[in-house]
Design a protein around this nucleic acid. Structure first.
Ligand code: MN
Ligand code: MN
Ligand code: ZN
Ligand code: ZN
Lengths: 156, 156
DNA sequence: CGCAAAATGCAAATATGTTGCAAAAAGAAT
DNA sequence: ATTCTTTTTGCAACATATTTGCATTTTGCG
């Protein structure tokens, strides 16, 4: 083993799995993902590393130190998705929401919970739902996503 | 028992369950849902009854005989949602997709499958996934939704 | 440093959904 | 059927979210 221990998570990349540590320094992650290390990418990745819930373009941009064009934010996120660093997740709002592709199990990320009262979205990182079992022949599952609506502890 | 047998399905309506038969004639359904029977509503409901997958506003409109304004289509769908006849479902595309609120189990509808190759979305009406069990104290589940991505039988 | 490829900013375009208001249609009462 | 009230509809404008084309800048590499 070389270097300090890092938490290893599984990331799904276009058809196969790789092991990757998304809690390393943003710069390192970019290099090992084969992405050019630009200021914007480093910052966006850092925002996502600190995020406690899926964020949309506007929320990400608001947390940046530098001014990045919104087009650039979208393009950066798309490059992260292609590299397998980021997922789009499944929330009630119209805007796409993005999240680091960590805290994932094989073929699925954790579920997301949206409160119908206060409208907050929470990551249920420790909640586990098995993969569907009785799917008909011929289907190949690449990813399963779960979304739950209801009342959060604050509102119930 | 009065009248011919109808398939009874469960529909989730704002906090409690009702039994309703969504394969009756569209006109009847509107009446029993307390909605005015307008030409547009009848047609939209019929389109949804025949649909084999979730449809968006544009797809619904394209299947109508009469010309309906897109605002009207959206408002009609919203009234169906309020009446518990229709759900919005979650697909990969940006546009909202709508589906009759049948083939549902308590607190959840069937999963939807989107093929990453041909981009088609299919209803997995007979696929069952249990409700999450290990959700922390304080959360109240009102609805669980599942989305699966992968290769469909045509593409695998 | 100098080059080629990739990333960025900006303006415009596109896609999707909502709002306000006036006109039309539906249902109830007569 | 006629009248009345309420709901629904169409239309234009607005709002929001995302994408595209193209010129400019930056990056990584030799
Ligand atoms: Mn999450
Ligand atoms: Mn369906
Ligand atoms: Zn809440
Ligand atoms: Zn397919």
């Amino acid at each position: 083993m070389d270097g300090p221990p890092v938490k290893i998570v599984s990331i799904y990349i276009t058809g196969f799995y790789v092991k990757k540590a998304l809690n390393r320094a943003a710069k390192e992650i970019l290099v090992s993902a084969g992405l050019r290390r630009t200021g914007g990418r480093v910052e966006i990745l850092e925002v996502l590393q600190q995020a406690k819930m899926p964020l949309n373009q506007e929320e990400i941009q608001a947390q940046l130190d530098r001014d990045l064009n919104r087009t650039t934010v979208y393009r950066t996120l798309e490059s992260f998705i292609q590299a397998g660093l980021v997922h789009r997740c499944f929330v009630r709002e119209r805007a796409w929401h993005y999240e680091l592709a960590h805290n994932c199990r094989p073929l699925q990320c954790h579920p997301h919970f949206t409160c119908t009262n206060c409208d907050r979205t929470l990551c249920l990182k420790d909640v586990f739902l098995p993969l569907v079992k009785d799917i008909p022949d011929g289907f190949i599952i690449q990813r399963q996503q779960v979304r739950i609506e209801g009342l959060c502890p604050n509102c119930s």
